[in-house]
Amino acid sequence: MYDNYLYFPATAALYTLSVVTVLVLLAGVIASTTLWMKGKAPSLHHPLNAPAIIKAFVLECLLQVQILRISVVRWLMHFCIFIGFLGLFAQTALMAFMSHFVPPDTFIAKTFFVSPESRLGGAGARVLDMWGDVFGLLLLIGLAIAIIRRYVLRLPQLETLLKDTLSLTFLTVIALTGFLCEGLRLTDPAYADVARYSFVGNLLAALLKNIGWSAASYQAWVWTHAVISLAFCAYIPFSKAWHIFVSPLEIVLDASERA
């Protein structure tokens, strides 16, 4: 474990929580898929059609043109949530990977992530600072549109159940606490030279300083953020967010069958 890549120490408690999360997530996935597997009729009537699958994956899963065709606002909402969430997930996954498998004295680490002056230095770290802010902001924009459609405009086509509210609440709280953590960290003068890369966090740090919040509560908020994020991951197979995995599967299967 190489702490050099993290702004906070990864404790045994965090590991334990992560393991519990993975177990609950797996249990949920198994519960759902075993129910699917009880279906014995043939799922496919034609051989899989690779070109149709690739086309549908790119256009309808990644770019989601089918939502764009229906409404630009809905597309913007979902694309922001989709890209924002995946961007943040990728960032977290990258750092987790680096801190476990890439020693800080390797060329790639020295060039991009670790510098003698700061714990997490180098151009790569700065890109990641900005990356987090951009994708966090996108996620928040998407969520804001979703919340306005669902709870302010109360569009008649949207039927709101507890699980819709729970998913949106989880994602919003994750994004907001993430930014709060960043803002609190950047109130620390040690980050003054690099703070400008975290353009949202920097702005937030100024606001937090004004109301007297300081880096002292950083650890507590990191914990809050981590626990809520892990809880959401564990909740995925039981929630609306399960569609993240299942909807693309249905899209490509249908595209292949109709090709």
Partner: peptide, 19 residues
Amino acid sequence: IEKFSARQLLELDACTRCG
């Protein structure tokens, strides 16, 4: 339930309830 295909049972989860 065995009369369904796995894909049909999966479809029940694939709905995003977008309306």
